[in-house]
Amino acid sequence: MALRAARALAPRAQQAAARRSMATEKEIAMRIASTKNIRKITSSMKMVSAAKLKGDQNRLAAAKQFAAWTAVLDEPATPLEELEGTAGLADHSVVVAISSDKGLCGGVHSAVARGLRTINARLKEENKTMNVIAVGEKGRSQLRRMVPDSLTTALTNIPPPYNFGYASTVAQMALDTEPEKTGAIAVVYNKFVSAIAYSPTLKTIAPFVLEGDDVTLTAYDADDDVLRGLREYYLATEIFYGMMEGATSEQSSRMQAMENATKNAGELIDKLTLIYNRARQARITTELIEIISGASALE
């Protein structure tokens, strides 16, 4: 972004330098000053996210152990890249897309939105439908364009970090969305891989089987009431876990983005300084020539 601006700026500055060297010199100096301010802002944003990332990582570590019990229930989540077809989604599903209200963090929100667009296209091929619940303003604004027909609910303006109470509210909302039609409920979020990588992931929560041979939690002694309550709790736990993964990915991606922006601003400042010095030199040379030729004309 900053580089593009620098490229666009350079020829214009040179032209202007040829026209009126005094004014451009000032103009360039101003531009250098403002770019320096931008660099200050981006580098402090980077440091802020680095500090916040620590907190997010701690919360994620706790959430991971908190959600460890879900292993008794089912298969692990699939990265969207490895997803084949519509993997486990029923004729009608509810999909919770987890993003946040804040931007300036690279492509994390777009990764979730693009993943949903792909799923949406595949569902359409198979004549299936879905309802999308968008968590976070950034997800909402992109999904509104990418899957306009499926987006039914958006939850915005909730300050991070998200807590379990909020996850439960979202879970309740997902369960209340056309419950007579809904087959599976899925959660799409960015899974934190490392400080420089994340992978958009889909976790499907299939409906519980309460009758027949293949009952849910068949290895355990559990009655139907427990299972009914458990589905709600399971969903809330998965949404909460997704939120923690998403928040950590977002913070690490923001750190990365701000580091790049700081680097780009630095490059831009170097380029502008060069142009500035050249313009100054040109002005001085012109003045000297003027004086010398003026003096020689008098001789």
Binding site: A62, A63, Q65, F66, A68, W69, N163, F164, A167
Partner: peptide, 12 residues
Amino acid sequence: LSFAAPHTVYYF
């Protein structure tokens, strides 16, 4: 024993 609440893990 694993014993955890959403934000705190007591035992793992």
